[in-house]
């Protein structure tokens, strides 16, 4: 259901320490839309992604969220960025998704535990909830991180390179899972990738970062432009 603009970027410049790496960014993400943020390594995809998430402040310009309030983000980071020294079980990782509402000095409510099990079930990982996160395969870790993002009860799901570094069968499974979540939960999804073959044709829009410029359009149109480059 694509109706209202969910997130709008107006004349935004992004970068680190006041040094812009991308300027004049103007686009909107509509509610329920599946957008792919595509570009080569080092093009600024993750920086743009983190700016949308408010992890990094924009250098200038404004980011407007629908209804004036910040949507609830479900964030799936690159799994390589998480240190394996932490002895978390898969269930504990998913439980982190509920920490946004957690009250200090209170034990985890039973409703949150049930919700976590529901999210694990959604991604087909319920039976592995007591397994150590560090002992899971790349594809399994990715599913757990998606379950954690779902545990935040998100309006917008943002996935940073969700299929990078995992085998083809697992990639297919992850993409099917994301597609299923998109359809069933009517989530607005933004997925970052640098691999053109991983972009499904059924997605709505591609934002392509090419030579420090942003080009956007519908998926079919953009795929043919990118492939002809």
């Amino acid at each position: 259901m694509m109706t209202d603009d969910c997130i709008t970027l107006k004349d935004v410049a992004i970068g680190y320490g006041g040094h812009p790496i991308l300027n004049d960014i103007n686009f909107s993400l509509k509610a329920g839309e599946f957008t792919v943020l595509f570009g080569p390594n080092g093009s600024g995809k993750t920086t743009l992604f983190k700016t949308i998430l408010r992890i990094i402040p924009p250098i200038h310009g404004t980011i407007v969220y629908s209804n004036g309030s910040l949507p609830r983000f479900g964030y799936v980071p690159q799994r390589q960025s998480l240190d394996e020294i932490y002895p978390f079980t898969a269930g504990e990782v998913v439980l982190m998704g509920t920490f946004g509402q957690a009250k200090p000095f209170c034990p985890t409510p039973k409703t949150d535990r049930i919700w976590v099990e529901h999210c694990l079930k959604d991604v087909g990982m319920l039976e592995l909830k007591k397994q150590l996160f560090s002992e899971l395969s790349g594809g399994q870790k990715q599913r757990i991180l998606i379950a954690r993002a779902l545990a935040t009860r998100p309006n917008v799901l943002l996935l940073d390179e969700p299929i990078t570094g995992i085998d083809f069968a697992a990639q297919k499974m992850i993409m099917e899972l994301i597609s299923q979540l998109h359809k069933e939960h009517h989530l607005t999804i933004v997925m970052v990738t640098h691999e053109i073959y991983s972009i499904p044709k059924w997605t709505d829009k591609i934002i392509w970062i090419n030579n420090n410029k942003i080009v956007l359009g519908n998926t079919i149109e953009m795929l043919s432009i990118i492939e002809n480059q």
């Binding site: 964030y75 960025s81 920490f99």
Partner: peptide
């Protein structure tokens, strides 16, 4: 464990 997720969770 995950600073970025912590920020997104407010």
């Amino acid at each position: 464990y995950d600073t970025d997720t912590a920020v997104t969770l407010g």
